[in-house]
Design a protein around this nucleic acid. Structure first.
Lengths: 338, 338
DNA sequence: ACTTGGCACTTAGGTGTGTTGAGTGCTAAC
DNA sequence: GTTAGCACTCAACACACCTAAGTGCCAAGT
């Protein structure tokens, strides 16, 4: 029972099943793949593979389909990531380079990835944790209402409208801005709250209550994890993928919509050697995704934020992984440039 | 063949069918509703209703189901919008009042509406067309790279990073800001480009090229229709609704994802007397929504932006319409306050 | 001029019975 | 360790049959 051939058989089963969506039998296998042996031999190998829990038969005497464990072995030891075709690469570049905004870049990225893989694509907003304060702007919108804007080094702009004492004037805000700016300019976002604490105490009494209000919202803005947001595309692909399994589409949609679930999922996904991380079927912590696989990888500085796709366990791992990796690379590059 | 009773029969059919999801027959009708007549009489009425195209039989000798036209008559002439229960109203208020950001308000709104109706909820960003310029901010991020921020009276903040001549200094930007601000402060957003045109010509030669770059991006920002975006929630409800019709979920998801389609749909929906507008089944211009209904209404100043829900034609129109109306009202109120 | 009971007719859907075909497991020979 | 052969299993399909729900229509009743 030669070990390499057994792996070869597993590969063949995975590939055929992904392609045909139907359990694959020994005879069909020897016909489609040039394994140099007869169907009986394959049957023996398949029995072994089944014993190891790598494949399973939906019912006695039908073809076999890979188990989660089988897919796992496939992606870990057998599959090779297929590079994308040149036209595909060109398309990615062209599309992403046309974007202007950070929002726009991310939006284009997910759409692209969804179309490329025919699956649901997900991208997480880049982390701000490593960014620092570039600028603060305070604007009096109306008596008692001010706009606080925080601009960070990575180009992200966050704003919030805040209630202030009615007697606050434009020049009070200007003073305050100057005061705060001297203290926190260049400070890493996570450290902003501590810096501000001392800073507010230094204020003259007349500015105390105004400073409290503004300072509080600045703290919120610097903590407001914009990275706690994800963008989706290609949910319609789910309908096609799960035509035969209409039962499971509901929970999957729920998971996708509950950003918390997706965020936890993405953040829990470590990175393997290649930088691409795969969760297959029940490896997913969330029950609704028991029949789904997630392929994700980091991007941007430190590869902290994630980009990836979600699809049925029965998916074309090699090309999907290639697409995710390629898109993540281009995305990182675009973000570096700006 | 008394006319009022026929309408009563139609109402009963619609209500039963929405409730049971199964074709409803004459006998079941007289049992569940206290119409004072026998099933044979109902059968005669049903034959009439069918002749008028208001109901139809899936196959010979089965119960009847309403047609699009039947639903249309139902919502136009029969149904009465049910007011929400007091606890529901309280929940809406509580949830919406906790929001801080415009984004946050809209996000909470769709989620709320989706949960309330058990359908897919949609909200369009409020129009900026009627807003005017409150403030302009220019920040030099790095040599050759500046951030342009445009703040409008309704509290919306838009920003963009733009390339500028490398020799531009902070104080150049400050001058420019002052110059532009004097000219366009208080100007309606759609008029900004014209004002800027003249304004740039006035600049001293040294600021010309910088002014061009900044002015151009300001024009873009003022034209960037943020209202061309929609927010979704509750797509998972689609899966439940269409359990029996798994065929049609794909096109619906596609439509939802193609913001262009949804935007056209929403903008084409006029307002009837009550301010709530309903599109039933094939009344929808987009083919993928042939078995879906959309209920929408305007909100905010001038009721230009839309909020609504999308579900199967077989939906509970009275309560859904009530929910949409209530949410739109609270939403308008919240936006007024800020 | 409606309404109603009665009756013949239609049909989706459930159930029972073969039949077929793909596929397996096992054994004995190579 | 491989292969041919063979008995066995079981989903899927087809066919026949029956039932329940529902209709359309007619003739009689109010």
């Amino acid at each position: 029972m030669s070990e390499p051939r057994r792996l070869e058989v597993l590969r063949a089963i995975v590939e055929d099943y992904v392609h045909s969506r139907e359990p694959v039998g020994s005879k069909a296998l020897v016909e489609r793949h040039r394994l140099g042996v007869s169907s009986a031999t394959i049957r023996n190998d398949m029995a072994l593979l089944e014993e190891e829990g790598l494949i399973t038969a939906p019912h006695t005497s039908s073809g076999r389909i890979p188990t989660d464990k089988g897919y796992r072995l496939f992606v870990d030891r057998i599959a090779e990531v297929k590079p994308l075709s040149a036209p595909e690469k060109r398309a990615i570049r062209a599309l992403l380079e046309g974007a202007d905004d950070l929002d726009d870049v991310l939006d284009r990225t997910v759409r692209l990835l969804a179309q490329l893989t025919n699956q649901v694509a997900v991208v997480q907003y880049p982390h701000l944790g490593t960014a620092s304060v570039r600028h603060i702007e305070l604007v009096l919108l109306a008596p008692g209402r001010a706009l606080v804007v925080l601009i960070s080094t990575n180009g992200a702009v966050q704003q919030r409208v805040v209630s202030v004492p009615a007697e606050a004037q434009e020049n009070d805000l200007a003073d305050l801005r100057q005061h705060f700016l001297e203290r926190v300019s260049g400070v890493r976002l996570p450290s902003v709250p501590q810096e501000l604490g001392a800073c507010i105490a230094d204020l003259p009494p007349s500015l105390q209550s105004l400073g409290q209000a503004i300072g509080h919202s600045l703290e919120q803005l610097s903590a407001a994890n914009r990275e706690d947001r994800i963008v989706l595309a290609g949910t319609a692909n789910l309908a096609r993928s799960t035509l035969d399994f209409p039962l499971t589409i509901g929970p999957v949609l729920e998971a996708l919509e509950e950003q918390v679930v997706m965020l936890r999922l993405l953040s829990e996904m470590g990175q393997d050697a290649l930088g691409i991380s795969v969760r297959i079927g029940r490896e997913n912590p969330y029950g609704g995704l028991a029949e789904a696989s997630v392929i994700a990888t980091g991007y941007g500085p430190d590869s902290l934020a994630k980009v990836g796709v979600l699809g049925p366990t029965r998916m074309d791992y090699p090309t999907t992984m290639a697409a995710v990796r390629a898109v993540a690379r281009y995305l990182s590059r675009i973000l570096d440039e700006s």
